[in-house]
Simulated scan of single mutants.
Amino acid sequence: MEPAIILVRPQLGMNIGMVARAMANFGLSDLRLVAPRDGWPNPDAGPPAAGADHVLDRAQVFACVGEALADCQLSYATTFRPRDLMKPVMTPRAAAAAIRSSHGKAGILFGPERSGLATDDIVTVQTLVTIPAAPSFASLNLAQSVLVLAYEWFLAQASPLAAAERIPAPHADLAGLLAQLNEALAAAGYFHPPERTRATRRTLAGILSAARFTADEIRTLRGVVRALARPRNP
């Protein structure tokens, strides 16, 4: 199953067009845009797509990263900067092999051209992907980054062990568990002091996303949270 290429807050239509061209070169067509700065559709995307109109025509627009990843069991975020997050880091080749050998849907996040992905964008993502580059000039543009991942995916071969793979739940299931857990913890007065609430929620999201729970496991955990939050008879 081909991965979704997810551009988070892309700024220029021409860059979206060049991404579409890179995707089409290697057989990818699932393009998702999160809050594009100049809206969508964008007439500036057509010419640099160089004929990859089928990718642009199918592009979907989402309001946030969580919505764009909702149907994805595997999630990856590309980043050049070190992150203070407890997440595995892969090369594009290793990530492509993992995606090819999986029966689940994968989503790969790419950040805005100027700033890259924010920590809040990737806190629930399972795996980080770093493209090796010369330390003296580790600067790839958006389309180049997509091209590297698409190329590696195109070359990767499916693993014969894929049938026995443990497939994580879709991102939407994890988001539901996190929302339920945060609500229950808030009701129990767990988030103290209040100014640490955001950081604590980030930590919880990182822990749960790293576990790569299956859909059945998430249903079980939601039942546990529901039971613990239920009022007790005196």
Results as ranks from 00 to 15, higher is better:
residue 154 F to Q: 03
residue 196 R to K: 15
residue 167 I to T: 08
residue 212 R to L: 02
residue 193 P to L: 13
residue 94 A to N: 11
residue 101 S to K: 10
residue 171 H to P: 03
residue 106 A to V: 12
residue 141 N to R: 10
residue 188 A to S: 12
residue 212 R to T: 01
residue 187 A to D: 09
residue 113 E to Y: 14
residue 105 K to E: 11
residue 85 L to K: 06
residue 104 G to L: 09
residue 184 A to P: 07
residue 167 I to W: 08
residue 199 A to W: 14
residue 168 P to T: 14
residue 171 H to I: 02
residue 104 G to H: 11
residue 84 D to H: 12
residue 199 A to Q: 12
residue 204 L to N: 05
residue 205 A to G: 05
residue 195 E to N: 08
residue 172 A to Q: 10
residue 90 M to T: 06
residue 181 L to P: 01
residue 118 A to H: 15
residue 85 L to P: 04
residue 118 A to P: 10
residue 91 T to H: 03
residue 196 R to A: 03
residue 211 A to R: 13
residue 192 H to W: 15
residue 214 T to C: 02
residue 153 W to S: 00
residue 76 Y to F: 11
residue 100 R to A: 07
residue 116 G to N: 10
residue 113 E to D: 06
residue 148 V to S: 06
residue 211 A to S: 08
residue 197 T to P: 12
residue 206 G to S: 08
residue 165 E to S: 08
residue 195 E to W: 06
residue 154 F to N: 03
residue 132 P to L: 00
residue 130 T to Y: 12
residue 86 M to R: 09
residue 112 P to V: 06
residue 199 A to D: 14
residue 217 E to K: 07
residue 217 E to G: 02
residue 151 Y to T: 01
residue 120 D to C: 06
residue 96 A to C: 07
residue 95 A to Q: 00
residue 175 A to Y: 06
residue 156 A to T: 05
residue 117 L to S: 05
residue 142 L to R: 05
residue 86 M to A: 07
residue 165 E to F: 11
residue 151 Y to E: 04
residue 135 P to A: 01
residue 95 A to Y: 09
residue 182 N to R: 14
residue 166 R to Y: 11
residue 213 F to A: 13
residue 205 A to T: 00
residue 160 P to V: 01
residue 154 F to D: 03
residue 176 G to H: 07
residue 78 T to M: 04
residue 161 L to R: 13
residue 170 P to I: 01
residue 139 S to I: 13
residue 183 E to D: 13
residue 180 Q to Y: 03
residue 173 D to L: 14
residue 210 A to W: 12
residue 138 A to L: 12
residue 175 A to V: 15
residue 109 L to Y: 01
residue 217 E to Q: 09
residue 120 D to S: 06
residue 180 Q to F: 06
residue 201 R to M: 07
residue 166 R to W: 15
residue 160 P to T: 01
residue 214 T to I: 08
residue 109 L to A: 02
residue 126 Q to R: 15
residue 185 L to T: 04
residue 94 A to E: 14
residue 78 T to E: 01
residue 76 Y to S: 00
residue 154 F to P: 00
residue 141 N to W: 11
residue 92 P to E: 05
residue 143 A to I: 01
residue 191 F to E: 00
residue 189 G to Q: 00
residue 106 A to H: 06
residue 89 V to K: 06
residue 121 D to N: 11
residue 96 A to M: 07
residue 194 P to S: 00
residue 122 I to G: 05
residue 92 P to A: 02
residue 76 Y to A: 03
residue 168 P to M: 13
residue 128 L to I: 10
residue 192 H to A: 14
residue 212 R to F: 08
residue 82 P to Q: 08
residue 209 S to G: 03
residue 130 T to S: 13
residue 215 A to Y: 05
residue 159 S to K: 05
residue 178 L to G: 06
residue 144 Q to N: 08
residue 164 A to G: 09
residue 133 A to N: 09
residue 138 A to Y: 10
residue 188 A to P: 00
residue 98 A to S: 04
residue 97 A to D: 10
residue 115 S to Q: 15
residue 84 D to F: 11
residue 127 T to S: 05
residue 117 L to P: 13
residue 205 A to N: 03
residue 127 T to H: 14
residue 185 L to Y: 02
residue 82 P to C: 04
residue 110 F to C: 03
residue 180 Q to H: 10
residue 198 R to A: 08
residue 87 K to A: 11
